[in-house]
Simulated scan of single mutants.
Amino acid sequence: MTVWTPVALARDIEPGTATGTTVDGDSVALWRGTDGAVHAWADRCPHRGMRLSFGFVREDRLVCLYHGWQFDGAGACRHVPAHPRMEPPKTVKPQQYRTVESAGFVWVSPTDADGTPDVPDTEITPVRSVWIDGDRGTVLALLGLDGTGALVTGTIDGTDVIAGIQTIDAHTTAVHVVAVGIAPADTVNALVLRLHELRDSVSSTREVVVS
Rank of each mutant, 00 (worst) to 15 (best):
R44D: 02
E14K: 15
V208M: 14
P89G: 10
P117R: 02
P184T: 08
V80R: 04
P15E: 07
D112C: 07
W31R: 10
A76L: 03
L193G: 06
V208L: 14
W31A: 00
A183H: 02
P110A: 14
R128D: 04
M1A: 06
T99M: 07
R85K: 14
G149N: 07
T138S: 13
A163I: 13
G134A: 01
V28Y: 03
F54V: 08
A174R: 03
R194Y: 01
D169S: 10
P46M: 01
G147N: 06
G158C: 09
D26Q: 01
D24R: 00
D118A: 09
V7Q: 06
D72Y: 10
C45R: 01
Y66R: 00
T5C: 11
S27I: 02
Q95I: 12
R85D: 15
F56K: 12
E123H: 03
E207F: 02
R11L: 12
A141H: 08
F54P: 06
V139T: 12
Y97V: 14
I168P: 08
R61C: 14
G137C: 05
A29E: 14
G115N: 06
G20V: 05
A141V: 01
G55F: 01
R58N: 08
A185R: 14
Q95C: 04
H67Y: 07
T153E: 08
A82P: 14
G55Y: 00
C64L: 07
I162V: 14
D121Y: 00
E87R: 13
V180Y: 05
T5G: 05
G164N: 12
V38D: 10
D186S: 09
E59V: 13
P15H: 12
F105W: 09
F71S: 01
A103G: 07
P15R: 13
L151E: 02
V208P: 09
P184A: 13
D35H: 02
T19D: 10
R85L: 14
E59R: 13
V106T: 11
A8M: 04
A42S: 05
V3G: 04
P84M: 09
P117Y: 01
G149H: 02
V139S: 07
H39P: 12
A174Q: 11
V80P: 14
R32V: 09
Q95G: 08
C77E: 06
Y97D: 15
G158L: 11
D118P: 08
I165N: 04
V106W: 02
